[in-house]
């Protein structure tokens, strides 16, 4: 299977047709109707199914965690650990270290891969340090950011992922300040420049692209990262049935491009057939409603410029790194082969 990370439709169908007990992530959880976090988990864990290894999931505190683990129930049919909000990457580091130690000492003979799920709060903000540390140390973990661009679990407060002008409960669109005054943090680039082997951006609306990226990420015995756009009906303000469409619109307006960075080699994996203006996405989400009213045109323009600027950057990076990546991932010298 070398170099072919594609997941096929029959493969997906086979996993989906399994009985409830054989699904890695089981329905009946308390995520909102139309929440994309559950969809993301299902796609990631479907792609992660392997004869070679089992999965351990570490979950940062957040919507996904609280909605799937209310005692005495659980939606997780894989080993799952939640400790706190800001330390998922550190907890995963410890589990991964234990794995290597127990393997070395002959107390474990099953192979594992580690997947972390964190929202934008647990990743961009409060968990940023733990994430950076884990990436630098080179643990095997696929860190999956489900990015709904605000602290949705506590009631839609702004994060450093919230886009400029978005209306949140701590960046409310007021009569003087029109929503969040700052730009969104570019987490993917910050993570990539830890010189880790694989970083990608995805949307659940393009599941085969997403799942291929999961498989590619898990092929590395090191830290990898995926930023996945996670539509939130409550926070973004749209009807639940529009969830996938909204995410796709973020892609089609180039707001959320689908690309990957493999050992410093940028590649746009799926280009939308036609680039739509940013308004096409903004108008679908109530959090931007005020921006489309007269007087806020300049903010829309700034958002469009940021999109264009980033796309230009991506295209240039892709061109520049076509022949040779900007870095080669170097595993820790102590890395033992498992």
């Amino acid at each position: 299977m070398a170099n072919n990370f594609n997941i096929t439709l029959p493969e997906v169908k086979e996993i989906a047709s399994r009985g409830v007990k054989d699904q890695p992530f089981i329905g009946g959880h308390r995520l909102c109707a139309g929440c994309n976090a559950g969809t993301i988990v299902r796609q990631v864990l479907t792609a992660a199914q392997s004869d070679e290894y089992q999965i351990v999931v570490v979950n940062a505190t957040g919507c996904l965690e609280v909605a799937t683990s209310i005692y005495p129930y659980t939606s997780w049919n894989v080993p799952w650990v939640h400790v706190a909000f800001e330390n998922a990457a550190a907890v995963a580091s410890g589990i991964e270290a234990a794995y290597r130690a127990l393997w070395r000492k002959g107390r474990l003979n099953k192979k594992f891969r580690f997947i972390v799920f964190g929202g934008d709060g647990g990743t961009y903000d409060i968990g940023f340090q733990a994430l950076s540390g884990a990436l630098e140390r080179g643990h095997q973990l696929l860190y999956v950011l489900y990015d709904n661009e605000a602290y949705m679990n506590t009631g839609i407060q702004r994060s450093s992922s919230t886009p400029l002008g978005a209306n949140t409960t701590t960046s409310p669109a007021g009569s003087v300040i029109p929503g969040k005054p700052q730009m969104k943090k570019r987490i993917v680039d910050i993570v990539a420049f830890h010189r880790i082997p694989y970083v990608a951006q995805a949307i659940p609306g393009q599941p085969f692209d997403l799942m291929k990226k999961v498989r590619k990420a898990l092929s590395y015995d090191g830290p990898t990262f995926m930023a996945i756009y996670s539509s939130c009906t409550r926070g973004h303000r749209f009807p639940p049935e529009k969830s996938v469409e909204v995410g796709k619109k973020a892609w089609e307006t180039y707001y959320w491009p689908l690309f990957e960075i493999e050992q410093g080699q940028w590649r746009i994996t799926m280009k939308p057939p036609k680039k739509l203006p940013i308004e096409e996405w903004l108008k679908m989400e109530g959090r931007f409603a005020h921006l489309l009213k007269p007087g806020n045109e300049h903010i829309v323009k700034m958002l469009q410029e940021a999109v264009d600027e980033y796309w230009d950057y991506l295209v240039r990076m892709e061109e520049m790194t076509k022949e040779k990546g900007l870095w080669t991932w170097v595993p820790p010298l102590t890395r033992q082969k498992i």
């Binding site: 351990v56 570490v58 650990v81 400790v83 706190a84 800001e86 330390n87 990457a89 550190a90 907890v91 995963a92 580091s93 410890g94 589990i95 270290a97 234990a98 794995y99 290597r100 130690a101 127990l102 070395r104 000492k105 340090q129 733990a130 950076s132 540390g133 630098e136 140390r137």
Partner: peptide, 26 residues
């Protein structure tokens, strides 16, 4: 020693990694 040594970036991560490892039976 046969220990897996994890030189973390803070005490918060130190105890978090310790707890993670403990859940793995280490």
């Amino acid at each position: 020693v046969t220990t897996e040594f994890v030189p973390v970036e803070s005490e918060h991560s130190a105890i978090s990694a310790c707890l993670g490892a403990a859940t793995a039976g280490a």
